[in-house]
């Protein structure tokens, strides 16, 4: 168990709804859900995932912390916005799903091998390093996300597309050596650090 997770468990005891309200982006909306079922019924992923949004929101209120935070469900959301468009209470469902995923990731509870999680982390690390996405590195990292052999296979399959991208100057081999970035990466890192501080302070301040 991560120390942050330990701290949260102690702080909120059995009140998982409160924890979500304080720590999850748009989490304060969860209590507004009236369990009508429209989001669950409208989600194109509906039949394929473990817990549709409606159920996740009820599980939060029922205090099923472990089950929610380790669930793969929020990682499957494709941001199609069907649910937001139809929710009779205008809950920002998509954002809550992403917020929950992010929170579970920070606590170290998110499922280790969930592909969206892996990609999201790769993308984030890639992006924040230089302030711009390094497509070559990201692509290569993606190929090898599921192991070395899989990576080689995928790379071979995508060879032609890669070459075409080189030709049309959409991908530069020079990116492998450092790669392009924004002028002030130090500044960017300072901004991100500050944002994280604010986020943590907000969660600390909350006492609903």
């Amino acid at each position: 168990m991560s120390t942050m997770n330990q701290a949260k468990v102690e702080k909120y005891r059995n009140d998982f709804l409160k924890e979500v309200t304080a720590n999850v982006e748009e989490g304060e909306w969860v209590k507004m859900c009236m369990q009508c079922g429209v989001c669950a019924g409208s989600c194109p992923f509906g039949p394929y995932w473990e817990h549709p949004p409606q159920e996740i929101f009820m599980m939060i209120r029922a205090g099923k912390r472990e089950e929610v935070l380790t669930s793969t469900s929020m990682w499957m959301c494709t941001s199609c916005y069907n649910c937001i468009a139809r929710c009779p209470r205008e809950l920002p469902i998509t954002h809550i799903m992403h917020g929950l995923a992010h929170y579970a990731d920070r606590l170290g509870l998110a499922p280790k091998n969930q592909p969206t999680r892996k990609f999201a982390n790769l993308f984030w690390n890639n992006l924040t390093k230089k302030g711009r996405a390094n497509e070559l590195k990201l692509g290569i990292a993606l190929y090898f996300m599921n192991g070395f052999i899989e990576g080689i296979k995928t790379a071979l399959k995508m060879q032609k597309m890669g070459l075409n991208m080189f030709k049309t100057k959409r991908l530069s081999p020079m990116e492998l050596l450092g790669g392009h970035g924004i002028k002030d990466t130090g500044g960017l890192h300072a901004i991100l650090k500050k944002a994280r501080e604010i986020e943590l302070a907000n969660a600390e301040k909350f006492n609903g």
Partner: peptide, 29 residues
């Protein structure tokens, strides 16, 4: 059935409306 119906489509052959949704009692689709 405790559920706000999400959407309706039609069975073309019979003309019957088909109601889609999730039952809040048990979360059955």
């Amino acid at each position: 059935i405790k559920s706000k119906v999400a959407r309706i489509d039609e069975d073309k052959a019979s003309g019957n409306p088909i109601l889609h949704g999730v039952n809040t009692e048990g979360y059955h689709r």
